[in-house]
Design a protein around this nucleic acid. Sequence first.
RNA 1: GGUGGGGUACCGAAGCGGUCAAACGGGGCAGACUGUAACUCUGCUGGCUCAGCCUUCGAAGGUUCGAAUCCUUCCCCCACCA
Length: 400
Amino acid sequence: MTIDQQLELLTARHVDLFSGDELKKKLEIAAKEGRGLRIKYGADPSAPDIHLGHVVGLNKLREFQDAGHTVVFIIGDFTGMIGDPSGKSATRPALSKEQVLENAESYKKQVFKILDPEKTEVRFNSEWLGEMRFEDVIRLSAHVTVAQLLARDDFSKRYADNRPISLVEFLYPLVQAYDSVMVEADVELGGTDQLFNLLLGRELQKIYGQHPQVVMTLPLIEGLDGVQKMSKSLNNYVGVNEASKEMFGKLMSVSDELMWKYFLYILCRPPEEIDAMRARVSSGELHPRAVKDELGRCIVDRFVGEGEGAKAAEEFARVFAERKLPTDMTELALEGEIGLIDLVVKAGFAGSNGEARRLIQQGGVRLDDVQNKDIKAVIPPVDGMILRVGKRKFARLSLS
RNA sequence: GGUGGGGUACCGAAGCGGUCAAACGGGGCAGACUGUAACUCUGCUGGCUCAGCCUUCGAAGGUUCGAAUCCUUCCCCCACCA
Protein backbone atom coordinates (compact mmCIF):
# COMPACT_ATOMS: atom_id res chain seq x y z
CA MET A 1 0.00 0.00 0.00
CA THR A 2 1.33 3.43 -0.86
CA ILE A 3 1.53 6.16 1.71
CA ASP A 4 -1.28 8.04 0.04
CA GLN A 5 -3.54 5.04 0.03
CA GLN A 6 -2.77 4.43 3.66
CA LEU A 7 -3.47 8.04 4.46
CA GLU A 8 -6.83 7.89 2.77
CA LEU A 9 -7.83 4.76 4.59
CA LEU A 10 -6.65 5.95 7.96
CA THR A 11 -8.35 9.30 7.79
CA ALA A 12 -11.72 7.99 6.64
CA ARG A 13 -14.68 8.97 8.83
CA HIS A 14 -12.75 11.46 10.95
CA VAL A 15 -14.14 14.75 12.21
CA ASP A 16 -11.04 16.78 13.13
CA LEU A 17 -7.53 16.11 11.98
CA PHE A 18 -4.43 18.10 12.93
CA SER A 19 -3.07 17.59 10.52
CA GLY A 20 -3.22 15.47 7.42
CA ASP A 21 0.16 16.73 6.29
CA GLU A 22 1.78 15.89 9.57
CA LEU A 23 0.31 12.43 9.51
CA LYS A 24 1.63 11.91 6.02
CA LYS A 25 5.07 13.01 7.08
CA LYS A 26 5.01 10.70 10.07
CA LEU A 27 3.89 7.81 7.91
CA GLU A 28 6.71 8.46 5.50
CA ILE A 29 9.36 8.62 8.16
CA ALA A 30 8.02 5.52 9.87
CA ALA A 31 8.00 3.64 6.59
CA LYS A 32 11.55 4.69 5.87
CA GLU A 33 12.69 3.58 9.30
CA GLY A 34 10.70 0.40 9.04
CA ARG A 35 8.66 0.89 12.16
CA GLY A 36 5.04 1.56 13.00
CA LEU A 37 3.59 4.66 14.56
CA ARG A 38 2.37 4.74 18.15
CA ILE A 39 -1.33 5.41 18.28
CA LYS A 40 -2.58 6.46 21.67
CA TYR A 41 -6.05 5.89 22.99
CA GLY A 42 -7.18 6.51 26.54
CA ALA A 43 -9.88 4.67 28.46
CA ASP A 44 -11.60 5.39 31.74
CA PRO A 45 -11.52 2.36 34.02
CA SER A 46 -14.43 3.30 36.24
CA ALA A 47 -17.03 1.92 33.86
CA PRO A 48 -15.66 -1.29 32.43
CA ASP A 49 -18.29 -1.65 29.75
CA ILE A 50 -17.20 -1.14 26.21
CA HIS A 51 -20.13 -0.07 24.09
CA LEU A 52 -20.75 0.73 20.48
CA GLY A 53 -19.80 4.35 21.11
CA HIS A 54 -16.27 3.19 21.88
CA VAL A 55 -16.28 0.91 18.89
CA VAL A 56 -16.19 3.92 16.58
CA GLY A 57 -12.72 4.73 17.86
CA LEU A 58 -11.62 1.14 18.27
CA ASN A 59 -12.42 0.42 14.64
CA LYS A 60 -10.13 3.21 13.63
CA LEU A 61 -7.40 1.89 15.90
CA ARG A 62 -7.78 -1.49 14.29
CA GLU A 63 -7.29 0.09 10.89
CA PHE A 64 -4.06 1.58 12.13
CA GLN A 65 -2.99 -1.81 13.42
CA ASP A 66 -3.80 -3.48 10.14
CA ALA A 67 -1.58 -0.91 8.48
CA GLY A 68 1.24 -2.03 10.75
CA HIS A 69 1.04 0.49 13.57
CA THR A 70 0.97 -0.05 17.32
CA VAL A 71 -1.88 0.95 19.55
CA VAL A 72 -0.98 2.24 22.98
CA PHE A 73 -4.09 1.60 24.99
CA ILE A 74 -3.95 3.60 28.19
CA ILE A 75 -6.09 2.61 31.09
CA GLY A 76 -6.56 5.63 33.29
CA ASP A 77 -6.32 3.73 36.51
CA PHE A 78 -4.70 6.61 38.33
CA THR A 79 -7.73 8.85 38.06
CA GLY A 80 -9.88 5.85 38.87
CA MET A 81 -8.07 5.40 42.12
CA ILE A 82 -8.45 8.98 43.25
CA GLY A 83 -12.09 9.19 42.27
CA ASP A 84 -13.38 11.78 39.92
CA PRO A 85 -15.54 14.57 41.36
CA SER A 86 -16.64 15.97 38.01
CA GLY A 87 -20.23 14.80 38.41
CA LYS A 88 -21.32 17.37 40.97
CA SER A 89 -23.76 15.38 43.07
CA ALA A 90 -22.36 11.89 43.31
CA THR A 91 -18.64 11.83 43.76
CA ARG A 92 -17.44 8.70 42.17
CA PRO A 93 -16.11 6.29 44.69
CA ALA A 94 -12.41 5.76 44.46
CA LEU A 95 -11.63 2.33 43.14
CA SER A 96 -9.25 0.05 44.93
CA LYS A 97 -6.20 -1.29 43.21
CA GLU A 98 -7.86 -4.69 42.94
CA GLN A 99 -11.00 -3.27 41.41
CA VAL A 100 -8.99 -1.31 38.90
CA LEU A 101 -7.07 -4.40 37.89
CA GLU A 102 -10.23 -6.42 37.68
CA ASN A 103 -11.88 -3.79 35.52
CA ALA A 104 -8.80 -3.63 33.38
CA GLU A 105 -8.97 -7.36 32.72
CA SER A 106 -12.57 -7.14 31.68
CA TYR A 107 -11.68 -4.16 29.56
CA LYS A 108 -9.03 -6.04 27.70
CA LYS A 109 -11.30 -8.95 27.04
CA GLN A 110 -13.80 -6.63 25.41
CA VAL A 111 -11.35 -4.44 23.59
CA PHE A 112 -9.65 -7.38 21.99
CA LYS A 113 -12.87 -8.26 20.27
CA ILE A 114 -11.83 -5.42 18.00
CA LEU A 115 -8.14 -4.79 18.49
CA ASP A 116 -5.28 -7.06 17.64
CA PRO A 117 -3.61 -8.01 20.93
CA GLU A 118 -0.32 -8.56 19.16
CA LYS A 119 -0.17 -4.94 18.16
CA THR A 120 -1.53 -3.44 21.34
CA GLU A 121 0.47 -2.11 24.22
CA VAL A 122 -1.69 -1.83 27.30
CA ARG A 123 -0.44 0.72 29.77
CA PHE A 124 -1.72 1.97 33.09
CA ASN A 125 -1.15 5.63 33.69
CA SER A 126 -0.54 5.06 37.39
CA GLU A 127 2.77 3.70 36.14
CA TRP A 128 4.06 7.24 35.75
CA LEU A 129 1.46 9.36 37.52
CA GLY A 130 1.73 7.35 40.72
CA GLU A 131 5.43 8.13 40.86
CA MET A 132 5.02 11.87 40.68
CA ARG A 133 5.69 14.02 43.68
CA PHE A 134 3.70 17.14 44.33
CA GLU A 135 6.65 19.12 43.11
CA ASP A 136 6.41 17.36 39.75
CA VAL A 137 2.74 18.14 39.56
CA ILE A 138 3.38 21.81 40.14
CA ARG A 139 6.12 21.83 37.53
CA LEU A 140 3.74 20.26 35.07
CA SER A 141 0.98 22.76 35.88
CA ALA A 142 3.36 25.61 35.26
CA HIS A 143 3.19 24.89 31.54
CA VAL A 144 -0.42 25.82 31.20
CA THR A 145 -2.37 28.96 31.98
CA VAL A 146 -5.89 29.23 33.28
CA ALA A 147 -6.89 31.18 30.21
CA GLN A 148 -5.72 28.29 28.04
CA LEU A 149 -7.85 25.87 29.98
CA LEU A 150 -10.81 28.19 29.95
CA ALA A 151 -10.61 28.10 26.21
CA ARG A 152 -12.20 24.72 26.37
CA ASP A 153 -15.76 25.11 25.35
CA ASP A 154 -17.53 23.48 28.26
CA PHE A 155 -15.26 25.16 30.80
CA SER A 156 -15.88 28.63 29.44
CA LYS A 157 -19.60 28.00 29.30
CA ARG A 158 -19.76 26.78 32.83
CA TYR A 159 -17.59 29.61 34.03
CA ALA A 160 -19.82 32.15 32.33
CA ASP A 161 -22.89 30.57 33.90
CA ASN A 162 -21.37 30.62 37.39
CA ARG A 163 -21.45 26.86 37.45
CA PRO A 164 -18.74 24.98 39.29
CA ILE A 165 -15.58 23.69 37.73
CA SER A 166 -13.53 21.52 39.99
CA LEU A 167 -9.80 21.87 40.05
CA VAL A 168 -9.51 18.18 39.33
CA GLU A 169 -11.41 18.68 36.14
CA PHE A 170 -9.06 21.48 35.30
CA LEU A 171 -6.09 19.27 35.87
CA TYR A 172 -7.52 16.40 33.95
CA PRO A 173 -6.62 17.59 30.44
CA LEU A 174 -3.14 18.23 31.67
CA VAL A 175 -2.81 14.72 33.00
CA GLN A 176 -4.07 13.28 29.76
CA ALA A 177 -1.67 15.43 27.81
CA TYR A 178 1.17 14.27 30.00
CA ASP A 179 0.28 10.68 29.17
CA SER A 180 1.02 11.50 25.55
CA VAL A 181 4.47 12.68 26.54
CA MET A 182 5.13 9.55 28.56
CA VAL A 183 4.15 7.11 25.86
CA GLU A 184 5.62 9.25 23.09
CA ALA A 185 2.47 9.12 21.05
CA ASP A 186 2.64 9.80 17.33
CA VAL A 187 -1.08 10.00 16.98
CA GLU A 188 -3.88 10.29 19.48
CA LEU A 189 -7.42 9.35 18.78
CA GLY A 190 -10.54 10.35 20.65
CA GLY A 191 -14.13 11.45 20.40
CA THR A 192 -14.88 15.00 19.37
CA ASP A 193 -15.39 15.90 23.02
CA GLN A 194 -11.72 15.12 23.55
CA LEU A 195 -10.42 17.62 21.04
CA PHE A 196 -9.16 20.09 23.59
CA ASN A 197 -7.37 17.48 25.63
CA LEU A 198 -5.80 15.95 22.57
CA LEU A 199 -4.56 19.30 21.37
CA LEU A 200 -3.08 20.04 24.74
CA GLY A 201 -1.10 16.84 24.32
CA ARG A 202 0.51 18.39 21.29
CA GLU A 203 1.45 21.51 23.21
CA LEU A 204 2.94 19.57 26.04
CA GLN A 205 4.91 17.26 23.79
CA LYS A 206 6.47 20.29 22.14
CA ILE A 207 7.44 21.64 25.53
CA TYR A 208 9.04 18.31 26.34
CA GLY A 209 10.97 18.35 23.09
CA GLN A 210 8.94 15.74 21.27
CA HIS A 211 7.29 15.88 17.89
CA PRO A 212 3.68 16.80 18.52
CA GLN A 213 1.19 14.02 18.08
CA VAL A 214 -1.26 14.07 15.26
CA VAL A 215 -4.75 14.53 16.61
CA MET A 216 -7.73 12.83 15.11
CA THR A 217 -11.26 12.92 16.42
CA LEU A 218 -14.13 10.67 15.53
CA PRO A 219 -17.81 11.37 16.01
CA LEU A 220 -19.72 10.53 19.13
CA ILE A 221 -22.59 8.46 17.94
CA GLU A 222 -26.02 8.89 19.41
CA GLY A 223 -27.34 6.19 21.67
CA LEU A 224 -30.60 4.30 21.51
CA ASP A 225 -32.68 7.39 22.23
CA GLY A 226 -31.31 8.87 19.04
CA VAL A 227 -30.57 12.20 20.67
CA GLN A 228 -27.88 11.99 23.29
CA LYS A 229 -24.50 10.50 22.74
CA MET A 230 -24.17 6.89 23.66
CA SER A 231 -22.99 6.58 27.22
CA LYS A 232 -23.23 4.29 30.12
CA SER A 233 -24.60 6.88 32.50
CA LEU A 234 -27.47 7.70 30.17
CA ASN A 235 -28.15 4.01 29.81
CA ASN A 236 -28.70 4.33 26.09
CA TYR A 237 -25.91 2.04 25.07
CA VAL A 238 -25.31 -1.34 23.55
CA GLY A 239 -22.41 -3.12 25.22
CA VAL A 240 -20.13 -5.34 23.19
CA ASN A 241 -20.41 -7.98 25.88
CA GLU A 242 -24.17 -8.16 25.95
CA ALA A 243 -26.18 -11.24 25.18
CA SER A 244 -27.20 -11.53 21.54
CA LYS A 245 -30.87 -11.21 22.37
CA GLU A 246 -30.37 -7.93 24.18
CA MET A 247 -28.00 -6.61 21.60
CA PHE A 248 -30.30 -7.35 18.71
CA GLY A 249 -33.38 -6.04 20.46
CA LYS A 250 -31.72 -2.80 21.38
CA LEU A 251 -30.51 -2.29 17.85
CA MET A 252 -33.99 -2.86 16.49
CA SER A 253 -35.23 -0.04 18.67
CA VAL A 254 -32.90 2.43 17.06
CA SER A 255 -34.55 4.98 14.80
CA ASP A 256 -34.45 4.38 11.06
CA GLU A 257 -32.35 7.50 10.61
CA LEU A 258 -29.73 6.51 13.14
CA MET A 259 -29.14 3.04 11.76
CA TRP A 260 -27.23 4.46 8.82
CA LYS A 261 -24.73 5.96 11.19
CA TYR A 262 -24.26 2.63 12.84
CA PHE A 263 -23.60 1.04 9.50
CA LEU A 264 -20.94 3.61 8.79
CA TYR A 265 -19.23 3.95 12.12
CA ILE A 266 -19.68 0.56 13.72
CA LEU A 267 -19.66 -1.77 10.79
CA CYS A 268 -17.45 0.51 8.66
CA ARG A 269 -19.50 -0.09 5.57
CA PRO A 270 -18.32 2.04 2.68
CA PRO A 271 -20.37 5.22 2.28
CA GLU A 272 -21.27 4.33 -1.31
CA GLU A 273 -22.82 1.09 -0.18
CA ILE A 274 -24.81 2.88 2.48
CA ASP A 275 -26.00 5.51 0.05
CA ALA A 276 -27.14 2.79 -2.31
CA MET A 277 -29.14 1.10 0.43
CA ARG A 278 -30.61 4.41 1.43
CA ALA A 279 -31.73 5.09 -2.09
CA ARG A 280 -33.40 1.70 -2.31
CA VAL A 281 -35.21 2.35 0.95
CA SER A 282 -36.52 5.74 -0.08
CA SER A 283 -37.72 4.34 -3.39
CA GLY A 284 -39.67 1.75 -1.44
CA GLU A 285 -37.75 -1.12 -2.94
CA LEU A 286 -36.21 -2.05 0.37
CA HIS A 287 -38.03 -2.14 3.68
CA PRO A 288 -36.26 -0.29 6.48
CA ARG A 289 -36.93 -3.25 8.72
CA ALA A 290 -34.82 -5.45 6.48
CA VAL A 291 -31.96 -3.00 6.69
CA LYS A 292 -32.17 -2.79 10.44
CA ASP A 293 -32.40 -6.55 10.64
CA GLU A 294 -29.17 -6.75 8.70
CA LEU A 295 -27.58 -4.21 11.00
CA GLY A 296 -28.56 -6.23 14.04
CA ARG A 297 -27.34 -9.49 12.55
CA CYS A 298 -23.99 -8.12 11.52
CA ILE A 299 -23.32 -6.45 14.82
CA VAL A 300 -24.29 -9.53 16.80
CA ASP A 301 -22.18 -11.70 14.51
CA ARG A 302 -19.26 -9.48 15.05
CA PHE A 303 -19.38 -9.19 18.80
CA VAL A 304 -21.05 -12.38 19.93
CA GLY A 305 -19.99 -14.77 17.23
CA GLU A 306 -20.56 -15.81 13.66
CA GLY A 307 -24.07 -17.16 13.18
CA GLU A 308 -25.40 -15.68 16.41
CA GLY A 309 -26.91 -12.77 14.53
CA ALA A 310 -29.25 -14.96 12.55
CA LYS A 311 -30.36 -16.75 15.70
CA ALA A 312 -31.03 -13.48 17.48
CA ALA A 313 -32.97 -12.17 14.51
CA GLU A 314 -35.15 -15.26 14.42
CA GLU A 315 -35.78 -15.09 18.10
CA PHE A 316 -36.70 -11.45 17.86
CA ALA A 317 -39.15 -12.04 15.04
CA ARG A 318 -40.63 -14.92 16.99
CA VAL A 319 -41.21 -12.98 20.18
CA PHE A 320 -42.05 -9.52 18.95
CA ALA A 321 -43.48 -9.89 15.47
CA GLU A 322 -45.23 -13.24 15.85
CA ARG A 323 -45.79 -12.76 19.56
CA LYS A 324 -44.72 -16.27 20.34
CA LEU A 325 -42.75 -17.49 23.29
CA PRO A 326 -39.02 -17.23 23.36
CA THR A 327 -37.16 -20.49 22.95
CA ASP A 328 -35.58 -20.43 26.33
CA MET A 329 -36.77 -18.75 29.46
CA THR A 330 -36.09 -18.86 33.13
CA GLU A 331 -37.62 -21.62 35.17
CA LEU A 332 -39.46 -20.85 38.35
CA ALA A 333 -40.06 -23.70 40.74
CA LEU A 334 -43.20 -23.47 42.85
CA GLU A 335 -44.28 -25.54 45.77
CA GLY A 336 -47.97 -24.92 45.82
CA GLU A 337 -50.62 -22.24 45.47
CA ILE A 338 -49.27 -18.76 45.21
CA GLY A 339 -50.80 -15.32 45.05
CA LEU A 340 -50.34 -13.55 41.74
CA ILE A 341 -48.53 -10.65 43.37
CA ASP A 342 -46.12 -12.96 45.13
CA LEU A 343 -45.57 -14.84 41.92
CA VAL A 344 -44.54 -11.76 39.99
CA VAL A 345 -42.20 -10.69 42.76
CA LYS A 346 -40.76 -14.17 43.16
CA ALA A 347 -40.02 -14.32 39.46
CA GLY A 348 -37.99 -11.13 39.91
CA PHE A 349 -40.23 -9.16 37.56
CA ALA A 350 -41.14 -6.57 40.19
CA GLY A 351 -39.03 -5.02 42.89
CA SER A 352 -41.83 -4.75 45.43
CA ASN A 353 -45.34 -5.94 45.99
CA GLY A 354 -46.58 -2.50 45.11
CA GLU A 355 -44.89 -2.64 41.76
CA ALA A 356 -46.31 -6.09 41.10
CA ARG A 357 -49.75 -4.83 42.00
CA ARG A 358 -49.38 -2.00 39.53
CA LEU A 359 -48.23 -4.30 36.77
CA ILE A 360 -51.22 -6.53 37.32
CA GLN A 361 -53.70 -3.67 37.45
CA GLN A 362 -52.29 -2.20 34.27
CA GLY A 363 -52.73 -5.43 32.43
CA GLY A 364 -49.08 -6.23 32.09
CA VAL A 365 -49.29 -9.70 33.57
CA ARG A 366 -50.33 -12.75 31.59
CA LEU A 367 -50.55 -16.39 32.45
CA ASP A 368 -50.46 -18.67 29.45
CA ASP A 369 -51.16 -15.59 27.36
CA VAL A 370 -54.29 -14.69 29.29
CA GLN A 371 -54.28 -11.29 30.90
CA ASN A 372 -55.00 -11.42 34.60
CA LYS A 373 -55.85 -8.14 36.28
CA ASP A 374 -56.94 -9.57 39.59
CA ILE A 375 -54.46 -8.57 42.25
CA LYS A 376 -56.04 -11.00 44.67
CA ALA A 377 -55.80 -13.95 42.33
CA VAL A 378 -54.34 -17.10 43.76
CA ILE A 379 -52.69 -19.29 41.21
CA PRO A 380 -53.08 -23.02 41.51
CA PRO A 381 -49.85 -24.64 40.50
CA VAL A 382 -49.77 -25.88 36.95
CA ASP A 383 -46.61 -27.39 35.62
CA GLY A 384 -45.33 -25.62 32.52
CA MET A 385 -47.51 -22.55 32.86
CA ILE A 386 -45.97 -19.44 31.33
CA LEU A 387 -45.83 -16.22 33.26
CA ARG A 388 -45.32 -13.16 31.13
CA VAL A 389 -44.81 -9.64 32.37
CA GLY A 390 -44.73 -6.85 29.85
CA LYS A 391 -43.32 -7.58 26.44
CA ARG A 392 -40.01 -9.00 27.37
CA LYS A 393 -40.14 -10.91 30.62
CA PHE A 394 -41.06 -14.58 30.57
CA ALA A 395 -40.79 -17.43 33.04
CA ARG A 396 -41.88 -21.04 32.92
CA LEU A 397 -43.45 -22.30 36.11
CA SER A 398 -42.77 -25.75 37.39
CA LEU A 399 -43.82 -27.77 40.39
CA SER A 400 -41.29 -29.03 42.80
C1' G B 1 -12.28 37.07 55.58
C1' G B 2 -17.07 39.17 53.73
C1' U B 3 -21.80 38.84 50.94
C1' G B 4 -25.46 36.13 48.71
C1' G B 5 -27.76 31.43 47.06
C1' G B 6 -28.59 26.34 48.16
C1' G B 7 -29.35 20.98 50.22
C1' U B 8 -36.81 18.02 48.30
C1' A B 9 -38.30 11.20 45.60
C1' C B 10 -33.80 7.74 40.14
C1' C B 11 -32.27 12.89 38.01
C1' G B 12 -33.63 18.16 37.35
C1' A B 13 -36.95 21.28 39.80
C1' A B 14 -41.61 23.59 42.38
C1' G B 15 -43.65 23.86 47.18
C1' C B 16 -42.36 27.83 52.26
C1' G B 17 -47.73 25.93 58.67
C1' G B 18 -52.97 21.88 57.36
C1' U B 19 -56.20 20.30 51.09
C1' C B 20 -48.12 17.00 50.75
C1' A B 21 -46.35 10.60 49.51
C1' A B 22 -45.14 16.22 47.84
C1' A B 23 -46.77 20.22 41.24
C1' C B 24 -44.02 19.95 36.65
C1' G B 25 -40.20 17.95 33.27
C1' G B 26 -36.80 13.98 32.20
C1' G B 27 -35.94 8.90 33.00
C1' G B 28 -38.20 4.11 34.07
C1' C B 29 -42.40 0.67 33.73
C1' A B 30 -47.22 -0.89 31.68
C1' G B 31 -51.21 -0.53 27.95
C1' A B 32 -52.84 0.77 22.84
C1' C B 33 -50.66 1.23 18.12
C1' U B 34 -46.49 -0.56 15.08
C1' G B 35 -41.88 -3.66 10.81
C1' U B 36 -39.74 -2.44 15.80
C1' A B 37 -37.63 -2.90 22.66
C1' A B 38 -38.87 3.39 17.35
C1' C B 39 -42.59 7.45 17.06
C1' U B 40 -47.20 8.93 19.10
C1' C B 41 -51.15 8.51 22.63
C1' U B 42 -52.90 6.82 27.68
C1' G B 43 -51.87 5.33 32.59
C1' C B 44 -48.55 4.28 36.60
C1' U B 45 -43.99 5.56 39.09
C1' G B 46 -41.93 5.34 48.41
C1' G B 47 -43.28 0.82 51.33
C1' C B 48 -46.96 -2.40 53.51
C1' U B 49 -51.20 -7.05 55.87
C1' C B 50 -53.51 -1.07 50.43
C1' A B 51 -60.82 2.72 50.63
C1' G B 52 -56.33 2.10 55.93
C1' C B 53 -51.50 2.33 57.92
C1' C B 54 -46.04 3.15 58.07
C1' U B 55 -41.34 5.69 56.66
C1' U B 56 -39.63 10.01 53.64
C1' C B 57 -38.17 16.58 51.89
C1' G B 58 -29.26 17.40 54.55
C1' A B 59 -28.84 15.80 60.41
C1' A B 60 -30.42 16.34 65.40
C1' G B 61 -33.43 18.84 68.70
C1' G B 62 -37.67 22.27 69.54
C1' U B 63 -42.45 25.32 68.78
C1' U B 64 -47.52 23.72 67.27
C1' C B 65 -53.62 20.14 67.69
C1' G B 66 -50.65 19.80 63.00
C1' A B 67 -43.97 21.03 60.02
C1' A B 68 -40.82 19.76 53.61
C1' U B 69 -42.69 24.56 55.26
C1' C B 70 -41.42 28.28 61.71
C1' C B 71 -37.11 28.34 65.60
C1' U B 72 -32.13 26.48 67.43
C1' U B 73 -27.67 23.94 66.72
C1' C B 74 -24.82 21.16 63.49
C1' C B 75 -23.07 19.05 58.68
C1' C B 76 -22.44 19.77 53.49
C1' C B 77 -22.50 22.39 48.56
C1' C B 78 -22.17 26.68 45.14
C1' A B 79 -21.28 31.59 43.23
C1' C B 80 -19.53 36.42 43.87
C1' C B 81 -16.42 40.28 46.33
C1' A B 82 -11.84 40.66 48.95
